[in-house]
Design a binder for these strands. Structure first.
Lengths: 245, 245
DNA sequence: GATACGTCTTGATCTGGATCAAGTTGGCCC
DNA sequence: GGGCCAACTTGATCCAGATCAAGACGTATC
């Protein structure tokens, strides 16, 4: 992870409608801009922070993508979320002022950094910021619950369909095609996240392709029959947005 | 659910060190007390709120216990958390100003109600309250992640051991015995929460008892060998606190 | 104290997906 | 181009825990 002393600006950021600045007045936005001083760049596999690190700042993904993981006592890894541009990282650290998960770049990525003390004082001053924070925090909690639902109630195929529909929606929100996209994570991380073996993921992709729901080429996914895919995912009630730190 | 017009007071509440009032100045505490107007009582199986209900208030468990559930499109239920006195309910509603899970009393229970508008304005005024809120929110997120870890990485026996150690800790924090307690949820809910069949739960209890780790009599649990139980649970890194709405 | 119903336990069988074991494929370096 | 390695796929086998099927226990009702 290396420091880029680039000045970043929320006011002119294309992600502002997804991120912390949403709904802020221009006065609030200016203050926020003053506090966000740096942009960090992470290479693939670099840690943004680790479980146990003190909570120094919260981060917003600016480009690229990240995974969040938790480790068992034996060192086995569980992926607990994937993060796309505009999503917030570090909220887990609010509990004890230190992080409880590891956040790792899946590809070259960059984040905006908002030092925690600044963040705390801005929250005291601006109701709009508090509101948007609460919105994002609530999403984090709700999305964790949807993931528990998926792991507890859905079979392997339904989980994968749910995941793909959720990615589709998130890409669409960011202005990308909802029907064709590249996954930034290897099968290994995807399988781990969904609680499924890598081999099973591979077989499921093959089956969904054979049945005409998808076209899969390595990490490139094209959704051919969104209708049937969303049926598989039990849409309308169980969209896993995949947020979660 | 019926309304008791009982005046409640955080200042004199024995749970204040676990709950929202923790760390507040006496001025802050007074303001908080002014806003918490009612105590709701819930009978067993009554809903405190349902998924889709507007976020009217947040709640603190005062007595008894609750489960939080999420439903699939088909109406299958997933239990996503159990709540004991001093724990906060309703945080999931921050995302869209409406609840995303159902909260149901497991036994006769009561909650303190803090209307959301009051809550929002108090957060603007008092840094101490914001801090404690963030603490509780962070716990919710972290505990959700620990649950994902348990579901993804642990086998049935390890999950049950993890759950029991976590309950033991939570009872201890509330001044009850960490080695003997009564579970307030039926096997059905416990099994669902842990992603295990009821029959398997029953067999696991029998096995843990045979091996001298536990004594189990229906919902009464006595931990006989906490050492070995915590080994099973891979303690030190994976304590599921079980919070989560 | 008999009847009944919900909750829990125990036993027998079955299966979705894990695991084990080879292959492919693609990208990268020299 | 060829060699190498990581990422992925495909096939064969296995097993933890689900499911199916009775029973046992507890509590409530009359």
């Amino acid at each position: 992870m290396k420091l880029d002393d680039l000045k970043v600006s929320c006011s002119s950021c294309s992600l502002s409608e997804l991120c912390l600045p949403r709904g802020l007045s221009s006065a609030e936005l200016n203050e926020l801009d003053n506090s966000i001083e740096h942009k960090y760049k992470c290479e693939r596999d670099a840690h943004l922070f680790r479980s146990g690190d003190p909570l120094r700042a919260i981060y917003a993904v600016r480009s690229g993508s990240f995974k969040a993981t938790v480790l068992t006592g034996e060192g086995a890894e569980q992926v607990v979320g994937f993060y796309l541009p505009g999503e917030l990282l570090g909220l887990d650290g609010f509990a004890e002022q230190q992080h409880t998960c590891n956040v790792i770049a899946l590809e070259s990525a960059s984040v905006c950094e908002l030092p925690y003390p600044d963040f705390e004082s801005l929250c005291g001053q601006f109701a709009g910021l508090r509101k948007q924070l609460m919105h994002l925090v609530g999403r984090e909690i709700s999305s964790g619950n949807r993931m528990l639902l998926a792991l507890g109630q859905l079979n392997a195929e339904e989980r994968l369909a749910t995941f793909l529909m959720s990615m589709s929606k998130r890409f669409a929100e960011r202005g990308f095609s909802p029907t064709e996209f590249n996954l930034s994570m290897p099968r290994h991380d995807l399988a781990n996240y969904l609680g499924i073996a890598v081999e099973t993921i591979s077989r499921l992709f093959a089956r969904l392709q054979k049945n005409g729901l998808l076209e899969v080429n390595r990490r490139n996914i094209r959704i051919v029959d969104a209708q049937r895919l969303s049926q598989l995912a039990h849409e309308r009630c169980v969209p896993v947005t995949g947020i979660s730190p």
